[in-house]
Computed example of a mutant assay.
Amino acid sequence: MKITTVRSTVIAVLLTVFGAFAVYRALPAEADSWQGCASGQFCLYKEAGGGGAPRATGPADDTQAYQAAWDNVAVSVWNNTPYWACIYDGTSYGGALQALKPGFRDALSKGSVDLTGKVSSHKLAKSKAGCWTGFERCPDGKLCLFEEPSGRGAWTVSTADDPAYGTAWDNRVRSVWNRTSLHVCFYRAPNHTSTWTVDGRDYKAYVVLRGKSTTIPAPYAPTFSSHKLVAGTSGC
């Protein structure tokens, strides 16, 4: 009688263990969730753990504005590239950002800033520091004005004098890259007029020399309303 009881107990334990194992094997393996992201691709997913079909792009496909299907929806990410992946909650590399190291594969909530459901643009950079600048977008020979510091955010291009920015860019410029062959004089009012008063001194213009990129300091930014290009700074 005792032998039968022991035997029954052993069989029950084995069945319990086997049942647990069978349930475990029935669950999808973690690797099954992270699909569709080949080596060299940066992939965003709408589901946790890399679930669903990804938005997969290569190193040459930086995106400054996602289409509606992917704007502000991603919840997980796989940076399957040798570069740093820079993701932003604003278009044109603007707003809050995460810098994801090569090989990062996890929820967007695991970065330095939680961008779950907020990603609107991205780029790949050779170093982490490259995530904090967007000056590289400025074409050679152009004057580029940016809405955020360090060349980030919305931007516009000019090659000539502009006597009035109008509502589009008035009081918005926070950084500049002057890639023209001339110096640029920025003014507080339209038609290259008005002044700034700093420490009791009046300044007619803020100058960015040819070839220079800079974040404009206070009190000059963001107060520009016009600019002109000159061969010498005395022309300001």
Results as ranks from 00 to 15, higher is better:
residue 5 T to N: 08
residue 7 R to G: 10
residue 10 V to F: 02
residue 12 A to F: 02
residue 13 V to D: 04
residue 15 L to W: 01
residue 15 L to Y: 04
residue 17 V to K: 08
residue 17 V to R: 06
residue 23 V to P: 01
residue 23 V to L: 13
residue 25 R to S: 14
residue 30 E to F: 06
residue 30 E to Q: 10
residue 32 D to K: 14
residue 34 W to K: 08
residue 34 W to D: 07
residue 37 C to N: 07
residue 42 F to D: 08
residue 42 F to T: 11
residue 44 L to V: 03
residue 46 K to R: 14
residue 50 G to P: 09
residue 52 G to Q: 05
residue 54 P to F: 00
residue 55 R to A: 09
residue 56 A to G: 03
residue 56 A to V: 01
residue 61 D to R: 14
residue 63 T to P: 00
residue 65 A to G: 11
residue 68 A to C: 03
residue 69 A to P: 01
residue 69 A to F: 04
residue 70 W to L: 02
residue 70 W to D: 09
residue 73 V to K: 11
residue 74 A to D: 06
residue 75 V to M: 01
residue 75 V to C: 05
residue 76 S to W: 00
residue 77 V to D: 01
residue 77 V to Y: 00
residue 79 N to L: 02
residue 81 T to K: 03
residue 82 P to W: 08
residue 84 W to P: 02
residue 85 A to K: 02
residue 86 C to G: 09
residue 86 C to N: 05
residue 86 C to P: 04
residue 88 Y to I: 02
residue 92 S to G: 09
residue 92 S to C: 12
residue 93 Y to P: 00
residue 93 Y to D: 12
residue 93 Y to V: 05
residue 95 G to D: 01
residue 98 Q to F: 04
residue 98 Q to H: 05
residue 100 L to C: 09
residue 101 K to S: 15
residue 101 K to Y: 10
residue 101 K to A: 15
residue 102 P to I: 00
residue 104 F to G: 00
residue 107 A to E: 15
residue 112 S to Y: 11
residue 115 L to N: 00
residue 116 T to N: 07
residue 117 G to L: 00
residue 118 K to Q: 12
residue 120 S to Q: 08
residue 121 S to Q: 05
residue 128 K to S: 12
residue 131 C to G: 03
residue 132 W to K: 15
residue 133 T to M: 07
residue 133 T to D: 01
residue 136 E to K: 15
residue 136 E to T: 15
residue 137 R to W: 02
residue 138 C to Q: 13
residue 141 G to N: 11
residue 143 L to N: 13
residue 147 E to T: 09
residue 148 E to L: 04
residue 150 S to L: 11
residue 151 G to L: 03
residue 152 R to P: 00
residue 155 W to E: 10
residue 157 V to W: 07
residue 158 S to K: 12
residue 158 S to H: 13
residue 164 A to V: 10
residue 168 A to R: 14
residue 168 A to G: 09
residue 169 W to M: 01
residue 173 V to E: 03
residue 175 S to N: 05
residue 175 S to P: 04
residue 176 V to Q: 08
residue 177 W to H: 08
residue 178 N to M: 04
residue 181 S to Y: 02
residue 182 L to W: 10
residue 186 F to T: 07
residue 187 Y to M: 07
residue 188 R to F: 05
residue 192 H to W: 15
residue 193 T to V: 10
residue 196 W to L: 06
residue 196 W to F: 07
residue 198 V to D: 01
residue 199 D to H: 13
residue 201 R to L: 13
residue 206 Y to R: 11
residue 207 V to T: 14
residue 210 R to Y: 03
residue 211 G to F: 08
residue 212 K to I: 10
residue 213 S to N: 14
residue 215 T to K: 06
residue 216 I to C: 08
residue 217 P to W: 12
residue 217 P to T: 11
residue 218 A to K: 09
residue 219 P to T: 03
residue 220 Y to T: 04
residue 227 H to Y: 11
residue 228 K to Y: 05
residue 230 V to L: 04
residue 234 S to H: 13
